[in-house]
Structure formats: C-alpha cells, structure tokens
Design a protein around this nucleic acid. Structure first.
Lengths: 220, 220, 220, 220
DNA sequence: AATGAATGAGCGTTCATTCAT
DNA sequence: TATGAATGAACGCTCATTCAT
C-alpha cells in the first residue's frame, strides 16, 4: 500500500497490513490513544512484532494516515469517474468516506501529526495538500452547478466528515452506524443548495426516542 | 441539587458538589476515562472520599449527566424567555449547549448510560424524557414558523450537538473551539429553512488550510 | 532515620524502612540499576507501594544514600569514641564501612546523584560535606601520629572503600566476602605508615589459586 | 586465535573475530549484561549470526576471557622483555592491564565462569593456570629484589587489578579513568616495599572534593 | 466521615531467544 | 550460512479499587 511495504518478506508484509487494518479499526473505536496491545491482539501478532514494524505510536498513526489519504484519493477518483456531475461525485465521496470511517484517523491528522505538517512537511503533508487541491476543484465545480451551497470549502467537508465518523464510545457499532447515517444525511441536506427549501423534508426515516430506547432494550 | 443530596451533612454535601463540578471539568478536558484521582485532586478531596460518594465511575457519570440535564433545562427556559420566536430560542439553546460543552458528558448519556435508559428507567430517563418533550414543543413551533427545516426532530439536534461538542483529541483547546464554532454554524445553516438558498453563503469566516498550518506553527 | 520518616503511619514507616533496607541489599548485589521490582519483592511489598514512597529510582537512591551517610557518621563517632588514637579509629572505621557494605551505594553518590551535588546542593551534599570534614580531621590526626601515610586524603579512602566493597557479580556472597577482606587488608597495609617495611608481611592468610578452585568446587 | 577458529570459512572467521572484538568493547562500556544486539550491531552482523557462533552469553564471555588471557600473556612477555628488573616488569604489567581494562571481563573470569574452573577445567582453566605460574615467578623475583612487599601473591594482584579496573557505573569515562589511576597508584604504593616509608608521599596529584564537584559542574 | 496506605492489573517498552527464509 | 522476522517474558510505570486507621 505505502512505499515502505515494498521490500518486506511475504509474511512480514501480511503482518504489516493486518496491523494497519487493526489499527484503523481500533483507532476508530477507541481513539488514537488506544492500547497498542489491543491493536496487536486484533491483528493476531505479538506486541513486539508491532513494535518491530512501528517503533512508536506516532509512526503507526503516520502510516495509517498515509494509507487513509491514499484510500481517499482512490475514492475521489472513483467518484468522479462514476458521476458526470460534481455534486453527485462529492456526495458519493462523502458518503463513502463516512462509510469507510477513513477519516477517523484523519482528525488525528490534525492532532498528533502536527509536526508532520510543519515547515516543508514530509510525504504526509504533500499527499494531503494534493488531495486538497482535488477536493477544491470538485467543490468549486459543485458550486458552479448551483448544487453546493456557497461559502463551503473542503475543510468544512473534511472536518465535518471527521466529526461525523467518530463513533460515540461504548454504544454498539450498530447504533453508531444508525446515528452516523442520520447525521450524515442532515449534513448533506445542509450543504445541498437545491434541497434548500423549508418545505422539503430530508430524505430519511428520522430517529425517535422510542427507537433509541428499543435499541437499548435489545442489546441488553 | 439532586435528591440524594438531601440527607447529607453540610461538609459532605459541599464535597459532593465539588466533586461533581470537578468531574465535569475534568471529563470535559480529558474525556470520560480521565483518572478519578485527578478529579479528586481538583475537588480537593481524597480519592477514597470520592469513592464513598460515588462507588464507581458509572455512578459519577450518572450524576454529572443528571446535573447536566438540569442545566440544559435551565438554558431552555432562559432561551424561551429571552426570545419571542421559537427559532431564535432554539438557535440560542443549541449555541449555548455547544458553548457549555454540556453534551461532552451527554454522549455518554447515550453510551455508558444505556442501562439507565432501559425498562422503567431511573431519574435520569425521567428527566431526559421531560426535557425531550420541551424540546419537541420548541422544535414544532420553529417548524410552524417556517424557520426550522421539516423532518428534523429533537434527537437530530441532540445528537448533532453531542457530535459537535466532542473535542478532537490531542489538538489544543483553541483549535477545537474554532472547529466547533465553524461546524456549529454549518449545522445551524443546514437546519435553518430561511437561509436555504444556494446563493446565500453561511455567515462566518471559513477556515483555510493555511490557517490550520499557521496554527500548528504557532503552538510549536 | 531520615526526616521524611517522621509523619508516617506506623505500618507505612515499617514498609518504608524495609524498602530502604532491601534497596541497600539489592543495589549492593546488582548495582544501582537493579530492577525495582526485585527490591519491592524482597521488601515484601507491592511495586506500587514502592512507587508511592519513592516516585522514581533516583529518589530511592537518594534516600538510601542519605541513610548511608547517616550510618557512616554514626560509625565515625563510635570509632573515635572507642579508640584513643586516630589511626586506630580510622582503621576501625574503614573496616566497619566495608563490613557494612555501606559504601556500595555511595559510588552511586558519585554517579546518579551528581545533580544533587551541583550548585548549592541539597541535604545530601550538605551531609556529605560535613562528613568529609570529620574524616579530614581524622586523617590529619593519623598522619601527625605518623601512622597514616602522607599524601593520602579522605577521597582516597572513600573511593577505596567504595571500590573494595563492590562485590564481583555472580559469585557467591562468601567468596566475595573473602576477597573483600583480603583486599581490605592489602589496602590498609598500603596506607599504614608504620607497617611500611619490605620485610614485614601483611597480617593475613593469603588466598591461593587452590583455595579459589576449592571454593568453586564447593558451591557446585 | 582460539582453537575453534580453525575450521571455519574465511568470512565466518572474520565474523567471529569482529564479534569478539565488539563484545570486548561493549562489555567494557556497558557491563557484561549489555544487550547482545548491541554487540551484533557493532560487529556488523545479525543477531542470529552471533547466536550461531555463540549459543549463549556465557560462551561469548568465555571466548572473550580466553582472548583476554592471551593478551595478558603477551603483555607479561613484553614487560619482562622491556625491564631488566622484576619489579619494573611487574609494575608495568599492572599498569598496562589496568590501562587495557582487560580485567573488566576477567572479574567475570571469577564469577560467571566458575564452572569453567571446576574439575579438570577446560582451555580457560588451563590458560589461566599457566599464566599464574608466570606471574608467580615474577612476583617471587620482585620480592627477592626487595621491591615487592612480602606476603603478596599473584591472586592479590589479579583481584586488585580486577577491582581497580571495574568502572563505577554511570559516571563518565573520564572521571572513572581519573579515579582508577589514583587508586592504582595507591595500590602500587601499597605493595612497593621500597616506598614504604611514612614520610614518603605517593607520587601523584591527589583528588579533592572540589575537583569532584567541579567535574560534575562541567559535565552538566 | 474522611483519609492514608496498599494492592492488582494493565499497558509501554526492551531484549534474549527461536523460527522461517 | 546468514539474515529477517516473530515471540515470550521481564521490567517500568500508572491507575482503579479496596483496606486500615
């Protein structure tokens, strides 16, 4: 996936990828300070193996972030290919990013990784900036179509997706998914210019207090 | 404040309140898993005293949540008093809730505290439901005014505020505040029916990548 | 023993002393970087208890050193009381210090504790300096008696005792004791002016290769 | 160098020697429990290679010790060649041994390696015994010259050198060297019959407390 | 009732040692 | 044969929790 994967032995590469995958999941669920042992456990490797590949937490986060940026780039490309209109592409991209929970690690792109963003910056900053340019084009195009609300920029989308994606701790994954979907539609509705009419309701089944309570009863 | 406060000695009650206050602060700053010792220290009591009052973390969270719900009720009342129109009251309420970061502990109202919501539920569920009814009235009124978008309910607002308020871990408080404010305006803009016009930009100074980078350079 | 012992609960004071005693032993045997867990184990307390008393290794070393300096002071006093002549007192002091292995932690007085010796210095430096003055008096007196070789100062004795006391790692305590005794007599013989005559042999039973080998066979 | 070197491929032999050399250095610097990986790294080989050559730490220590004994033999020969008188040769030998810190590993000749001294003993014991005989001759000769104090034997010298050479942990190499030199002169002065006169001071600049403190201030 | 004190358990990190290539 | 890789285990340190005063 990333360059550093290149000259690794087959089994080591497999381990490396499992670790990154596990890290993405765990960071998603428990935040960036989650126990590394949990990650190792979930990746099915010994903690020392994790340390061999990633000498410290920061390095691991870096690599996951790099990986994520790559994935985002791929999703962006795919979205533009699959949609003739910018708004359609943008909406798919955002939905997809939330779906993949890719950005959960990105907020950490803001914290934890500040140093990588300073001065010249390394590959991380470079890739981020490049991605931003692409998103900016898409954003402007959607605004020229009259589909994306004025005054919105990639940062808004970026941070919005990050906040949306972060699961609320300790509630089950299902409920989190439900909530995230709901809020995502609200978000999209909020930035979609065309839908902006007081009388036009959001296209979704709203949550109710009863539904929430029913959920809690279920998972008992 | 809460019922259980009733039959306590004066100094014990003072302790209890100091602990809850400290807990709100610490939970806000360091998350809900912050060391209880930190809370005890800030409250100026021994850790064992904290344990005597709150046998486990859950109980403490519960009480803070109850306290928070009370505060929300007060804010709601104030907002309706200060604003003749429902939308004005609602907007102020949401802004205020985010400002107070009250919901930082509330998300835990959903997770962590699920059990308290099951079956009959205790005082927590009761107070929450009561609050919801009030919010529902306000919501409906705002929709009848044609100011709040159709299809939006208190849960959306509630969860929205919760997600908005949760600070991104590890970045400074300032940047978090900036981001929260930005996203809050986006949120309000998204649910405000009147503003729903593609050509009308949001009322705010948007964030830029440069601003972010400059921020990081500053805190170096 | 040290001031800080004063306001501790009875059981805590007992623990504290056991820890210091264990630390002296373990530092003696395994050096100043010995596992703190070993010390806790030998003191019969949990590692966390050790940490409660001594937040880090340095603090523990400091306290042991302080304790040692106190003991040395006591031994010095006793030696001068028990011997009318300075040389007699000095010899007893050195023998006694080696016997108590007190100085094993003192070498660490030189390393590890440098910071405590810099600038004004704290209680450690103060007590050391005070001790030195006493030793200097004793040294000069012995030289005026014509019993201590010229050109020798307290530092020589101090460092000599330290080096003598350090047990060779991994060989049994008995053999170490034997060796230390032998070298101590050699040392005393070397600094004793009166004995300085080529024809006068040292007063001791010299070690032989056979004795060493026999020893090894025994401990098999 | 040693017998086992005989039937190795050229590159393997080179590796072996590099490892032993690196081991001597590292043992000297960081003690006998230094990480084997450090040794491997410095020798420029993989840790697994080190393990292939030396199945465990003990074996490695053994070989380094053997190597050292060889070096001591060479130094002894050189000393006797360069000095017509036994005392001169002996003094040079001791100075040289201390200088080379050869014995840093030798003390381990006594501990750690006891087993190699038991029963028949292996090459290590054999070489040690042979060396001892040579030292005994030198010692006796020096005593007959009236230059070496009576009652002193090679073991005394051997163990003395070992204790002198062991650096005090954690203080810089410079200070250690200073201390070792000082104590070596004290040692030589102590065993030298001719110098044995109360009025004759040692030939050296004595250490002072101020000098020690100044040293610490420097390395700050 | 409140505090001082102790403990068990978890995670971070390093290293000796073994296994797979 | 030599190396890359993985592992188990030890130790450092912190914190939730309980016990003694």
């Amino acid at each position: 996936m990333t360059e550093s994967t290149t000259r690794l032995r087959a089994d080591a590469r497999r381990n490396r990828e499992q670790i990154i995958t596990a890290a993405r999941e765990v960071f998603l669920e428990r935040g960036i300070h989650a126990p590394l042992e949990e990650i190792a456990r979930r990746a099915g490797v010994n903690i020392a193996t994790l340390y061999r590949r990633f000498p410290d937490r920061h390095t691991l986060v870096q690599q996951v972030a790099l990986d994520n940026l790559t994935l985002v780039g791929e999703e962006l490309t795919r979205a533009t290919v699959e949609h003739p209109d910018a708004w359609g592409a943008l909406a798919q991209l955002l939905r997809r990013l939330v779906e993949l929970r890719i950005s959960v690690i990105m907020p950490e792109l803001v914290p934890g990784l500040e140093k990588d963003m300073r001065g010249e910056g390394g590959p991380l900053k470079e890739r981020r900036n490049q991605l931003f340019e692409q998103m900016e084009q898409l954003t402007r195009a959607a605004q020229q179509e009259g589909q994306l609300r004025q005054g919105i920029n990639p940062i808004d989308l970026w941070l919005g997706v990050i906040k949306l994606s972060r699961p609320l701790p300790a509630i089950g994954a299902e409920l989190n998914e439900l909530i995230i979907d709901q809020q995502l539609e609200l978000f999209l509705g909020g930035i979609h210019a065309v839908a902006l009419d007081a009388s036009e309701p959001l296209r979704r089944q709203p949550l109710t207090l009863d539904a929430l309570d029913r959920y809690f009863r279920m998972v008992e």
